Amino acid sequence: MSGNGNAAATAEENSPKMRVIRVGTRKSQLARIQTDSVVATLKASYPGLQFEIIAMSTTGDKILDTALSKIGEKSLFTKELEHALEKNEVDLVVHSLKDLPTVLPPGFTIGAICKRENPHDAVVFHPKFVGKTLETLPEKSVVGTSSLRRAAQLQRKFPHLEFRSIRGNLNTRLRKLDEQQEFSAIILATAGLQRMGWHNRVGQILHPEECMYAVGQGALGVEVRAKDQDILDLVGVLHDPETLLRCIAERAFLRHLEGGCSVPVAVHTAMKDGQLYLTGGVWSLDGSDSIQETMQATIHVPAQHEDGPEDDPQLVGITARNIPRGPQLAAQNLGISLANLLLSKGAKNILDVARQLNDAH
């Protein structure tokens, strides 16, 4: 009898209710805020589980004197976190989706994509230029951005401005803007500013005609071990179906173009009346040469937790077992079709030249 009692006690200790789920994140304040929001949602869904947040620095956090596009290494903000995932030191990792490459290392998958916040870019102005827009900034004003995508589009749109690289986390960039006289304004992701509670610093939100956004911008991705079915089931509740389908289309477009950090590629997606609209573009580094096109596809946005595919093969690095396969494939095909259209119009040449120029500098 006593033996059975011990077995029952052991089973209770090993039951999922007692389990601590370890969540990996970057150390920056924004990353911690984003991770806290994901953990809060998981806690609400699984009140019996405990969650421990483990923060670590990544290569991208450490190399702050070089433009991201020049470092010449993929997975700048993800490699150390993936290493911890691989060694079973954490069970899942919360990322900004735009930091996750469209091809993940073997053994990993994006197990959830959370509801997207505003994906557009924002302009934050130096205190002396508050009330201005990019259009009304004085001639030769210097605007800071760490992104080739932003610089290429904005140089084309605002030729009277000069664009220079600015690195560091959000706090560091804002301090550089406010305390030094080098920059009249800087460009940042609206979602990051909003998550930090800095709505009052948003001086201008850039519309798609001015600057399309990065693939996955404004959404959070939760990376897990691809074979860890328990954790895949656990994080599945975080999937937002519309965000998922938009981001599958965007990531398929980028992957098929073979774009990345070192080339200016941008997108804009919208879901309306059962249609998914995808606009994508590529630019030369100075913005003088560009190709942009829009395509659409009829896609039914499923309700969360309709029964999805059981075999769960990944699409552009994403596993969404609780979302039907048909809409996911339709979104992926839309991204591939748009990429093929741009490639047929000469996108590869623009991107190759951009890559060579970026590598040469």
Rank of each mutant, 00 (worst) to 15 (best):
L64D: 09
H126R: 09
Q296V: 12
L278W: 04
A185D: 07
I231R: 04
C114V: 06
G107I: 01
L148V: 12
E139K: 14
A339M: 01
V353F: 02
E182K: 06
Q153A: 02
S262L: 01
R150C: 06
P313R: 13
V124S: 06
P138N: 11
L234C: 11
E80S: 09
R246G: 10
E139N: 13
L315W: 10
A151F: 10
I318V: 14
K79L: 08
A122F: 03
V38N: 04
I71R: 05
H160T: 13
I248V: 08
G236W: 00
K272C: 06
R251V: 08
L338H: 00
T78M: 04
L245H: 05
R246A: 15
L49Q: 13
Q314C: 13
D61F: 03
L254W: 15
K98S: 02
V39Y: 10
L100K: 02
G281D: 00
T294Y: 00
I186T: 14
S96K: 01
M295L: 14
K87M: 11
V353M: 15
V265N: 01
V267N: 15
F77A: 04
H199I: 12
R325H: 13
D65A: 07
D91H: 04
I187Y: 02
N200H: 14
G72I: 13
C114I: 13
V142Y: 11
Q275H: 14
G107T: 02
C114G: 07
T133E: 12
G335T: 04
M212D: 00
N322R: 13
V123L: 11
P101E: 08
G216D: 05
D273R: 14
D228L: 04
E117Q: 08
I299H: 10
P324S: 08
P105A: 11
K132G: 13
P119I: 02
R149A: 02
H199N: 14
K345Q: 05
G60L: 00
A339S: 06
L278P: 08
Q296Y: 11
N88T: 13
G144C: 08
W198Q: 07
G197A: 04
C247G: 08
I231F: 02
E82R: 08
E258K: 15
G221T: 07
K62S: 10
Q155A: 14
Q153C: 08
P127V: 07
E209P: 15
T41H: 12
I53F: 13
L351H: 11
P208F: 14
C211F: 14
E80P: 08
N333S: 00
I71H: 08
L92G: 06
D121R: 02
L334Q: 01
G216W: 02
P309G: 15
Q50Y: 12
R321K: 15
W283V: 00
S75N: 14
H305L: 10
D359K: 04
Q332G: 08
L76M: 13
L334M: 13
Q217Y: 03
L341S: 06
H95V: 09
S288H: 01
T298E: 11
T269Y: 01
E258G: 14
R195M: 02
Q50R: 11
L278M: 06
G281A: 12
L49T: 13
E210R: 13
A67L: 09
Q275I: 05
I350T: 00
E223R: 02
T172D: 02
V265F: 00
K74M: 03
T102C: 03
G197M: 02
T109C: 14
D121W: 02
P159E: 09
R156A: 14
